[in-house]
Simulated assay, not measured.
Amino acid sequence: MIQYPSLHKPATIGVTALSSGVPEALHPLLKGAEKSLQKRGYQLIFGESAWTQHKAKSAPADVRAKDFHSIIQNGKVDFLIPPWGGELLVETLEHLDFNRIPSKWILGYSDTSVLLLAITLTKGIATAHGTNLVDLRGESMDETTAMWEKILLTKAGESVTQHSSALYQKKWDFENPTPHIFDLTEETEWKTVSGNPETMKGRLLGGCIDVVRHLIGTPYGDVEAFRNTYIQDEPVLWFFENCELSTTDLRRSLMQMKLAGWFEHCSGMMFGRSAANHEVDGYTAEDVYKDLSEELQIPVIYDIDCGHMPPQVTLINGAYAEVEVKSGKGTVVQHFR
Rank of each mutant, 00 (worst) to 15 (best):
residue 92 T to W: 11
residue 32 G to C: 09
residue 95 H to S: 11
residue 117 L to T: 15
residue 42 Y to H: 04
residue 124 G to F: 01
residue 71 I to C: 00
residue 121 L to A: 05
residue 137 R to I: 05
residue 18 L to C: 03
residue 114 V to Y: 06
residue 109 Y to D: 00
residue 74 N to P: 07
residue 134 V to W: 14
residue 63 V to K: 13
residue 43 Q to C: 10
residue 125 I to N: 03
residue 67 D to Q: 01
residue 76 K to F: 15
residue 107 L to I: 13
residue 73 Q to V: 00
residue 38 Q to F: 05
residue 30 L to M: 11
residue 18 L to G: 01
residue 110 S to L: 08
residue 96 L to V: 10
residue 130 G to A: 04
residue 18 L to A: 04
residue 34 E to C: 04
residue 48 E to Y: 02
residue 76 K to H: 11
residue 83 P to H: 00
residue 135 D to I: 01
residue 76 K to N: 11
residue 89 L to T: 15
residue 41 G to S: 12
residue 134 V to K: 10
residue 47 G to R: 01
residue 54 H to Y: 13
residue 99 N to E: 14
residue 46 F to I: 05
residue 138 G to D: 08
residue 72 I to K: 00
residue 56 A to L: 15
residue 86 G to K: 14
residue 102 P to K: 08
residue 85 G to H: 13
residue 21 G to N: 12
residue 84 W to Y: 03
residue 50 A to K: 02
residue 109 Y to T: 12
residue 97 D to Y: 03
residue 46 F to D: 06
residue 88 L to P: 13
residue 72 I to N: 00
residue 44 L to V: 09
residue 25 A to Q: 11
residue 104 K to C: 07
residue 35 K to T: 14
residue 131 T to H: 04
residue 19 S to I: 13
residue 56 A to D: 15
residue 111 D to H: 02
residue 52 T to P: 08
residue 32 G to K: 11
residue 96 L to D: 09
residue 38 Q to M: 11
residue 100 R to G: 06
residue 109 Y to K: 08
residue 20 S to P: 03
residue 85 G to C: 10
residue 120 T to H: 06
residue 61 A to R: 08
residue 136 L to T: 13
residue 77 V to M: 02
residue 56 A to K: 13
residue 28 P to Y: 15
residue 45 I to L: 02
residue 67 D to F: 03
residue 86 G to Y: 15
residue 24 E to D: 12
residue 88 L to K: 15
residue 87 E to S: 15
residue 81 I to C: 10
residue 103 S to P: 00
residue 51 W to K: 05
residue 35 K to Q: 12
residue 129 H to C: 04
residue 121 L to S: 06
residue 128 A to C: 06
residue 49 S to R: 05
residue 74 N to W: 01
residue 137 R to H: 09
residue 130 G to V: 00
residue 27 H to D: 12
residue 70 S to V: 03
residue 91 E to I: 10
residue 62 D to P: 10
residue 61 A to Y: 06
residue 118 A to F: 11
residue 48 E to M: 09
residue 121 L to H: 04
residue 108 G to I: 02
residue 122 T to N: 14
residue 42 Y to N: 05
residue 29 L to I: 06
residue 117 L to W: 06
residue 90 V to P: 07
residue 83 P to D: 09
residue 54 H to T: 13
residue 84 W to N: 15
residue 41 G to V: 09
residue 128 A to D: 00
residue 91 E to C: 13
residue 137 R to A: 12
residue 28 P to W: 15
residue 57 K to P: 14
residue 58 S to H: 10
residue 107 L to A: 03
residue 65 A to D: 04
residue 69 H to P: 00
residue 32 G to L: 11
residue 102 P to Q: 02
residue 105 W to H: 01
residue 113 S to A: 07
residue 67 D to P: 01
residue 34 E to I: 06
residue 83 P to Q: 10
residue 26 L to E: 14
residue 130 G to H: 06
residue 136 L to E: 08
residue 82 P to A: 06
residue 54 H to C: 07
residue 32 G to N: 14
residue 43 Q to Y: 05
residue 128 A to E: 03
residue 64 R to E: 05
residue 100 R to V: 08
residue 56 A to G: 08
residue 108 G to Y: 00
residue 69 H to E: 01
residue 119 I to R: 11
